[in-house]
């Protein structure tokens, strides 16, 4: 079980309200996207949920426990892979385990099967600079997954990749999502990506940022690439574009 709820979160910087009364919900094994114009406060919301900053008002609840302002509870991955350039892939991936007190050698043993599952076998002893962008991102995702207690926040994880790599990452992610137990909250600018991957989509607009719409994508998962060409998909896309215009 991993269930994340935010209650009326409001955060200000220098007297200016950035996000206001954000109420979102993430259920077990769900993938929920957050789409919004730049400056709507999506990253501020993520920083709040991850505990890096504390909100002026509101609460973050994980399985009913109040985790407002506490770090280390949900895992957080940013746009850049942020792998440590001086650690090998296995040590990068094992870092969250080591930080929680596992012995280095034992942590390496523990991550080995996951490296295989994430298509990273053979890269254990390599440094991040030796890997392609897609592989680095996969390693970063694996690290995020391993430090999570079931909930991961992904801030535009695929946006730095080129279109072709991005496509293959989508395909890979759709497959892996069914194997791993993870509830994911996902920020993206890419509407196609959001519809393809999500169970539900929140639209965030305005200044200060608010949740203005919630759309459930009913098409069953796993979805294939062909879904992107269906009438159903286009209907969702139209709905989102309209809503963003209104905001």
């Amino acid at each position: 079980m991993a269930n994340l709820v935010t209650k009326d979160i409001t955060k200000c910087f220098d007297g200016k309200t950035i996000i206001e009364e954000i109420n979102i919900e993430l259920n077990d094994k769900e993938l929920v996207s957050l789409i919004g114009v730049s400056g709507a406060g999506k990253t501020t919301l993520f920083n709040t949920i991850s505990g890096l900053i504390s909100p002026e008002q509101g609460q973050v609840l994980l399985d009913g426990e109040d985790i407002t302002g506490k770090t280390g509870k949900v895992s957080y991955m940013l746009q850049k892979d942020l792998l440590l350039p001086f650690k090998t892939i296995e040590d990068n991936v094992a870092l969250p385990l080591v930080l929680k007190g596992t012995k280095k050698k034992q942590a390496r043993e523990m991550v080995r099967p996951y490296l295989r599952e994430f298509g990273l076998e053979g890269t254990e002893k390599k440094y991040p600079a030796q890997l392609s962008g897609g592989m680095r991102q996969r390693a970063a995702l694996l690290r995020t997954y391993l430090c999570s207690s079931g909930v991961a926040l992904l801030d535009e994880p695929f946006s730095a990749l080129d279109t072709i790599t991005k496509r293959s990452m989508h395909k890979w992610y759709l497959e892996i999502m069914d194997h791993i137990h993870l509830s994911t909250l996902f920020i993206t600018h890419d509407i196609d990506e959001a519809i393809l991957l999500s169970d539900r989509i929140y639209l965030m607009t305005g200044k200060p940022g608010r949740i203005t719409k919630e759309i459930a994508i009913k098409t069953p998962r796993p979805r294939s690439e062909e879904f992107l060409l269906t009438e159903e998909f286009l209907a969702y896309k139209r709905e989102i574009i309209e809503a963003l215009k209104l905001g």
């Binding site: 890096l52 770090t71 509870k73 991955m77 942020l82 870092l95 969250p96 930080l99 430090c147």
Partner: peptide, 25 residues
């Protein structure tokens, strides 16, 4: 790197751990 620093903090790393795992190298 500030982002990496935040990432380690979000993983719940202590100041000593951040120093050892990130700053030294």
């Amino acid at each position: 790197d500030k982002d990496t620093l935040n990432l380690l903090r979000s993983m719940g790393a202590s100041k000593v751990q951040i120093f050892y795992h990130l700053k030294v190298k």
